[in-house]
Design a binder for these strands. Structure first.
Length: 158
DNA sequence: GCCAACGTTGGC
DNA sequence: GCCAACGTTGGC
């Protein structure tokens, strides 16, 4: 199957790109997603080899700050069964897991962040889901073209 | 199955 | 801190 492209949203106060950089093998499981639309993508669509725009929300500046690669396709998020986890889901059944996650590995921290404000000014990104009003999904598909445009901006010398 | 109430997200 | 958007819950 053709490689696909995604945007993962995260609050750096919880887990930012510097945390990913410091992680063993610069790899992490993307735990804690508790939204069914995002769950379906994690479980069914996001495959090893896909690439990810890493976006910081709830912080100034809000921006895509780098890229990552999916190194493991969807598998059950164990935190749903852990009563001590902040992501615990009392309704989740180990025989039929409700929540899924993937593993990602840092690819590159951009030399400069590509801010939300800047992306809004780029015509080629006009249809990007992140930029649509009321877009709250923490996992979003992006097109190959959107991925290319954003990574070029991030890698351009400032 | 509808929908009002409520909680959360997240940009501003 | 505000509030629009939107997902979830629960009474009916």
């Amino acid at each position: 199957m053709a490689k696909r492209y995604w945007l993962f949203k995260t609050e750096p106060s919880v887990f930012g790109i510097e945390d990913l950089k410091r992680s063993p093998r610069q790899t992490t499981c993307w735990e804690g997603v508790r939204n069914y639309q995002a769950r379906n993508m994690l479980r069914d669509e996001i495959r090893k080899g896909d690439r990810v725009l890493f976006y910081h929300s709830q912080v100034q500046p809000m921006a895509v700050v780098g890229t990552a690669e999916v190194v493991r396709s969807g598998y059950p998020d164990e935190t749903q069964f852990d009563p001590k986890s902040r992501y615990h889901d009392p309704g989740a059944d180990p025989a039929d897991p409700r929540w899924f996650m993937v593993d990602i590995r840092l690819e590159k921290v951009f030399p400069r962040p590509v801010t939300l404000q800047e992306m809004r000014e780029v015509k080629a990104l006009g249809k990007m889901m992140l930029l649509q009003k009321g877009s709250r999904l923490s996992i979003q598909p992006v097109t190959a073209e959107e991925f290319r445009v954003v990574t070029r901006l991030g890698n351009r010398a400032s």
